[in-house]
Structures are given as structure tokens and as C-alpha cells.
Design a protein around this nucleic acid. Structure first.
Length: 566
RNA sequence: CGGGGCGUGGCGCAGUUUGGGAGCGCGUCUGAUUUGGGAUCAGAAGGUCGCAGGUUCAAAUCCUGUCGCCCCGACCA
């Protein structure tokens, strides 16, 4: 491809709307343009990358026994009403009406459709397992689209749905996908981790997320420095820690603490450590007010609390509600004498003589002890894991990383097939619901994640497997015929070797060409300049290294192939 | 939806406080000189100041409404 003909409008300045580096670079390098919030056009370079990612995904899905289908984006409301998700999905689903006023959804996902199709034509256990997948646009009216392609309202996704006879079958399908996903992200050339995940609203008992590591990723993950354990912080198992054994229980003491509201306030005022206090958080769980207590320096994990309570809706209570039932405001709450259900974090059970609010404004208790001064409804794991926590599996310590969730695999079980009444006949002629799994990869997000992980101050550094082109040939001076001729010749040779090549044939100064080549992130650059050319040599430079190699012209193709093909 | 901010040539911004000439840098076009890291000089084109009302002799500027965008929070691949 000739630069002069390639449509890649690069920008010198950063568009002000872009905050994160992947968004900035994809805009600056002429990969994407915005149509509307969270909706983008993929220009030629971006679409090449997308297709490369898709093809790697496609190959691994096929290898794992998947069959590709294409499903409607516009889906009738009835299907969603049947599964119950027409209501559940709420404002996040795009809805539209046809001329007959019939409702449709723009598919945010395709469980309903695929389950209906399979139910219609798969009637026997003999036809299972069945693995069907699609790669296409999906739509979610995100509360807040952001970070360019990272969280769009229209995005490209691969979803595979597995249909099995029973849980054992699902285990097999799940493991196939787990393996395929590892193959995929390895082949994409990305640094990633698999973590145990919360399966969220979709339900199911096992779930893993595939995280591309990036410093400013949206998700926090913990991993063990000694074993294979890794989990989303939402899911990471926390342990109780050591009991403070030799401390005696001291008598409860009520202390006047005027104006002291926060954990920090009390730490300063009473000279007690944050880890010697407990905080009391009030939640509304399906309409019932409950208290969650944990060590003063810890953060509550709402997902863990929600899972433990088994409730549908969980949100922080208003201060007014709290005052009515506890008699005090947020800064002075505590479990002692509280008339609500109290859920204590595991750590609270091993603390002794701690400090907390007294349910009376401007008063706190000292030397509170669980069991003696109050009895919780349950003692459970409800805090966020932090770096330095003990690994739940071994003697190691947990470390913290940030990542971008690019893949997520779920065991759905019979949640959808039950709702959709999708069944087959087993060996005994019994009608059974399909046992399902669902396995997603955010294709467009993966492109953004790749940029997020691979860039420097000059631009993108594409991993070779997904680079839009392998090589860019740059004659330094476009007016120099000898250089131009040599550039054209190398361009031809490399193409004949099956490489994807750009030749920068524009009448631009060398600086402009170098800047653009770096910005769009082509892995290998071949520079043809006068000095080297006199010795019959050209420069080969890898995008991710500073050094250049001076090579005889007839050695260039071999060297480039070596770099690209490994 | 709550909080904050922004809409002015393609991009980045000033001008709005205190109403009266629509400006700057980059980019684009023409010509010349340049050619190893986003050149220089000379010239040129390009804007309903997001949109709709209102106030005023006069509105980018003041008022009301509305649309869009960005950031923080709850949601998620």
C-alpha cells in the first residue's frame, strides 16, 4: 500500500475529547473517528487490525469445535419478554419500534436468539454438544460511554454459546473455551492474566475473566506471588488474619467525640489506629436496612455483600433513613445496641477492644468486642482484597495489578433454557433443559487494550500478529531518484515474500514520514538514505527498539521475515 | 440519573467578566527555497460563534430553553 493512497488522517494535536492514551493514539494515528458518543467509524488501518483479531479468534473458535453464525442485530421484543430480560435490562438496551408499533431491541447480547434457534431445531441429546458463535456489532446504551473504544455503545464482540446435555458436558465445553482463550490472547501478543471472576447478574457457578494488563485499566486484579491464584478484586477471597490472642477484653467505654465523624478524625482525636476501629456502613437491601461492619482501614466490597445477602437490589442507605432507625448520623454509627441485622467482615471477628460509633451523635465506644457487646447476623467475607493479603490457597502474598477485561467466560447452566423453555430429549426420552455456557471477547475493546498496553511517547507499537501492516519502507528524500527506485524495489520484494508493506511515497520531509510511521505503530521500518545507500545498505529499525541495523540490500528481506515471523 | 466542565474555520485554543471590529497557532491551497525526526518565506481560501427563542440601536458575549460532547460516581465485554 502506498502512503499517498492510504486513508490515514493523522493529527499532530490530541483531540481534546480523548482522555486515555489508546483513545488519543487511535484518533491521532487516523484509525478511528467518532460518529456519536461511544460510536465509532473504523478507518482502514483500524479495520485491518480488527480483522486480524477476528481471524485469530475465529481460527481458535473453529479449532475448539465452534461453528460461526450471524444473528440479527434487531431482535423482536417477545424473545426478551420471554426470558424476562426486557424489563431487567432496563435503560441499557436500545429499543425501537417499527411502523406497526411493534417493539424491537438492538441486541446487547444474543442468548435469547440463539437459545430460540437451538430449541427450534435441536431435539435430541444426540445432537449435543453444540457450540455456536458470532462476531458482530452489539449495542448497549451505556450509562456513560467512555475511553473511546474501551466502553462504547456500539462495539464488536465475539460470543460463543455452548449447549450441553449436562453439567459434565458443560465442564468439557468450558475447558475447551478456557484453553482456546489462552491460545487467542497468547497469539494476539498481549500480556494478560486469567482471573477468577464474579459471574454477576447472569448467574452460574464458574466464571473467568481474561485481563490485558495495563496501568490504567478499569479493573483491579490480585494475584499470588507464589502460586497460580489470580482473581478480580470483586471476587478475591479474603481471610480473617491472626487473632489478637493475648489481649484481655477491656470494659466498654463511651467517649465524647464532638464533631469527629470519619475514621481519620477518630484516629487523630483518640489516637487509635484505623485498624483498631471498625466502620459501619448502612445499606438498603431489597428494602430492608442492614449494617455492614469492617475494619476501619478496609473497603467494603458491595458485590460480595450482595452475593452473601442474596438480594437483588443493594444501595447505600440515605442519612435520613439511618437517623430514623439508629438515632445517629453517618459519623457515629456502630453495632452496639443496633436493632438491625449486622453483617460483620471476617476480620472483625478476630479484632479485640476496637473503637466504633455509639449510635449517638458525637459519641464513640472504646473497647468494643464482638460477642460480648453485640452479635452479628453473620460473619462473612465482605471486604476488598488489598496488596499484602495472604493468598487463600498457599503461603504467598497477594499483589495488585490493573487490567482491561477483554474476555469473560461463564457457565450459565439452565438459567436461560429454563426461562426460554428450551429443551431436548435425553436417552430416557425425558425432556431436559439445555445446559449452557457463554463466552465473550470484546474485539474492538481488545484493539484499544492492545494500544493501551503497547505504546510510547511517539505513538502505537502494534504487536506483530495484529499490526495493520508489517513493514513501512521510507525513502528519506522523495526527490532522490536512486532512493525512490531502491524503495520501490524493496517494496516489491517484501510484498512478494507475503509481507504486508507500506511505502511512504509522499513528497514529505523525512521528519514527517518518521513521525507518522512511529505514530501508526508499524513494527518494522526500513529507511533508505543517501549515505547508507552508497555502501549498498539500508536501515532496518524495530518500532520497539532504539537501535537501527544497517543491512546489505540483498539481506533485507530475510531479516525482515525473521523479525515478523519470529 | 447526580456532581463538574466544554461547544468559536479541519484540529488545538483566545475572545464572554465589562455587549459595538471574529482572532491566534497548527493544518489546507498556490508559488519559491528546502529534504535524516512534524521546514522557511510570500500569498490565499475557509467560521450560521452547537441550535431555538428573548433582551438591546447593537449579542460569540446578557437571559430562557434545548441538543451534543468530555470528566468523576453507580453499570459492564
Amino acid at each position: 500500500m502506498r502512503s499517498s493512497e492510504l486513508f490515514y488522517p493523522t493529527l499532530r494535536e490530541v483531540p481534546s475529547e480523548a482522555e486515555v492514551v489508546s483513545h488519543q493514539l487511535l484518533l491521532r494515528a487516523g484509525f478511528i473517528r467518532k460518529a456519536s458518543g461511544g460510536v465509532y467509524t473504523y478507518l482502514p488501518l483500524a479495520y485491518k487490525v480488527i480483522k486480524k483479531i477476528e481471524n485469530i479468534v475465529r481460527e481458535e473458535m473453529d479449532k475448539a469445535g465452534g461453528q460461526e453464525v450471524l444473528m440479527p442485530i434487531m431482535q423482536p421484543a417477545e424473545l426478551w419478554q420471554k426470558s424476562g430480560r426486557w424489563e431487567v435490562y432496563g435503560d441499557e438496551m436500545f429499543r425501537l419500534q417499527d411502523r406497526h408499533k411493534r417493539y424491537f431491541a438492538l441486541g446487547p447480547t444474543h442468548e435469547e436468539i440463539i437459545t430460540t434457534v437451538v430449541d427450534g431445531d435441536v431435539h435430541s441429546y444426540r445432537d449435543l454438544p453444540l457450540l455456536l458463535y458470532q462476531i458482530q456489532n452489539k449495542y448497549r446504551d451505556e450509562i456513560r460511554p467512555r475511553f473511546g473504544l474501551m466502553r462504547g455503545r456500539e462495539f464488536i464482540m465475539k460470543d460463543l454459546y455452548s449447549f450441553d446435555i449436562d453439567d459434565q458436558g458443560l465442564d468439557v465445553s468450558y475447558r475447551k473455551m478456557y484453553h482456546a482463550y489462552n491460545q487467542i490472547f497468547t497469539r494476539l501478543g498481549l500480556d494478560y492474566r486469567v482471573v477468577e471472576a464474579d459471574s454477576g447478574a447472569i448467574g452460574g457457578d464458574e466464571s473467568h475473566e481474561f485481563m490485558v494488563l495495563a496501568d490504567n485499566g478499569e479493573s483491579e486484579i490480585v494475584y499470588c506471588d507464589n502460586c497460580d491464584y489470580a482473581a478480580n478484586v470483586e471476587k478475591a477471597v479474603c481471610t480473617a488474619g491472626e487473632v489478637q490472642q493475648n489481649d484481655e477484653l477491656l470494659p466498654l467505654e463511651k467517649i465524647h467525640t464532638p464533631g469527629q465523624r470519619t475514621i481519620q478524625d477518630i484516629a487523630d482525636y483518640l489516637k487509635v489506629g484505623k485498624d483498631e476501629q471498625i466502620k459501619t456502613l448502612m445499606y438498603n437491601a431489597d428494602g430492608e436496612l442492614i449494617a455492614a461492619i469492617l475494619r476501619g482501614d478496609r473497603e467494603l466490597n458491595e458485590i460480595k455483600l450482595k452475593n452473601a445477602l442474596g438480594c437483588n437490589e443493594l444501595f447505600m442507605a440515605s442519612e435520613d433513613d439511618v437517623r430514623i432507625s439508629c438515632g445517629a448520623g453517618f459519623g457515629s454509627l456502630g453495632p452496639v445496641g443496633m436493632d438491625l441485622k449486622i453483617y460483620a467482615d471476617l476480620e472483625v471477628a478476630v479484632m479485640k477492644n476496637f473503637t466504633c460509633g455509639a449510635n449517638l451523635d458525637d459519641y464513640h465506644y472504646k473497647n468494643v468486642n464482638l460477642g460480648r457487646d453485640f452479635v452479628p447476623e453473620a460473619i462473612i467475607d465482605i471486604r476488598n482484597a488489598v496488596a499484602g493479603d495472604p493468598c487463600p490457597l498457599c503461603e504467598g502474598q497477594l499483589k495488585l495489578l490493573r487490567g482491561i477485561e477483554v474476555g469473560h467466560i461463564f457457565k450459565l447452566g439452565t438459567n436461560y433454557s429454563d426461562a426460554m423453555e428450551a429443551t431436548f430429549r435425553d436417552q430416557n426420552g425425558q425432556s431436559c433443559p439445555f445446559v449452557m455456557g457463554c463466552y465473550g471477547i470484546g474485539i474492538s475493546r481488545t484493539m484499544a487494550a492492545a494500544v493501551e498496553q503497547n505504546n510510547d511517547e511517539n505513538g502505537i507499537i502494534w504487536p506483530i500478529p495484529i499490526a495493520p501492516y508489517h513493514v513501512i519502507v521510507v525513502p528519506v528524500n522523495s526527490k532522490n531518484e536512486e532512493q525512490t527506485r531502491m524503495a520501490e524495489s524493496i517494496y516489491q520484494i517484501l510484498q512478494q515474500e507475503g509481507l504486508e508493506v507500506i511505502i511512504d511515497d509522499r513528497d514529505e520531509r523525512a521528519g514527517v514520514k518518521f513521525k507518522d510511521a512511529d505514530l501508526i505503530g508499524i513494527p518494522v521500518r526500513i529507511t533508505i538514505g543517501s549515505k547508507a545507500l552508497q555502501e549498498n545498505k539500508v536501515e532496518v529499525k524495530k518500532r520497539w527498539e532504539k537501535e537501527v541495523e544497517l543491512l546489505e540490500i540483498d539481506k533485507v528481506a530475510v531479516r525482515v521475515l525473521e523479525i515478523i515471523r519470529g
